[in-house]
Simulated assay, not measured.
Amino acid sequence: MTALLTAELAWYATGRFYRTHDGALADYGYFLHLPFADAPLFAGEPAETSAHFTFAATPFKADGIDNGALSLGLDPVGEFSLYLQRAPAASFADPASFAKGECIATFRRTSLVVGTTVATSLAAASAAIVGTNVFSARLIASHPFEFAGKRYDLAEAVGAGITQFGTAATVPISPPPEGYDLVLPFTGSAIALGRAG
Rank of each mutant, 00 (worst) to 15 (best):
117 T>D: 03
129 I>E: 01
121 S>E: 13
108 R>I: 00
78 G>F: 12
136 S>Y: 11
135 F>W: 07
83 Y>C: 02
131 G>V: 09
122 L>I: 05
133 N>Y: 09
80 F>I: 11
130 V>N: 01
122 L>E: 09
122 L>Q: 03
118 V>E: 01
85 Q>F: 00
96 A>D: 06
112 L>W: 06
120 T>Y: 08
87 A>Y: 07
87 A>Q: 13
97 S>Q: 04
126 S>H: 05
126 S>M: 08
113 V>P: 02
111 S>M: 06
137 A>W: 01
112 L>Q: 15
127 A>Q: 10
105 A>D: 01
110 T>Y: 10
116 T>A: 05
115 G>K: 04
108 R>W: 05
105 A>H: 07
113 V>W: 02
135 F>S: 05
123 A>Y: 13
118 V>F: 02
86 R>N: 14
80 F>C: 10
79 E>H: 04
92 F>K: 14
105 A>R: 08
124 A>N: 06
135 F>Q: 01
78 G>P: 03
130 V>M: 04
102 E>F: 13
131 G>T: 11
121 S>F: 01
86 R>Q: 12
125 A>I: 01
105 A>W: 00
129 I>C: 02
88 P>L: 07
110 T>W: 11
139 L>H: 03
136 S>H: 10
118 V>N: 04
97 S>C: 09
121 S>C: 11
78 G>D: 08
124 A>K: 01
90 A>M: 03
86 R>T: 07
131 G>H: 13
136 S>D: 11
132 T>L: 04
97 S>I: 13
82 L>T: 09
85 Q>D: 02
108 R>Q: 09
82 L>R: 12
116 T>R: 06
127 A>V: 04
129 I>G: 01
91 S>I: 05
127 A>E: 06
107 F>R: 09
102 E>G: 09
91 S>C: 10
95 P>E: 10
96 A>K: 12
113 V>M: 01
137 A>M: 00
135 F>I: 00
99 A>I: 11
93 A>P: 07
95 P>L: 11
87 A>E: 12
98 F>I: 11
130 V>Q: 01
121 S>L: 10
95 P>S: 12
127 A>M: 08
94 D>V: 15
130 V>G: 06
121 S>H: 07
113 V>H: 00
82 L>M: 14
79 E>V: 09
124 A>M: 07
90 A>D: 10
89 A>E: 09
91 S>F: 00
122 L>K: 05
83 Y>K: 13
97 S>G: 07
134 V>Y: 06
132 T>M: 08
117 T>P: 02
132 T>W: 10
107 F>W: 01
83 Y>I: 08
123 A>H: 08
134 V>H: 15
135 F>T: 00
104 I>R: 12
133 N>S: 14
135 F>L: 12
80 F>K: 09
136 S>R: 05
109 R>V: 05
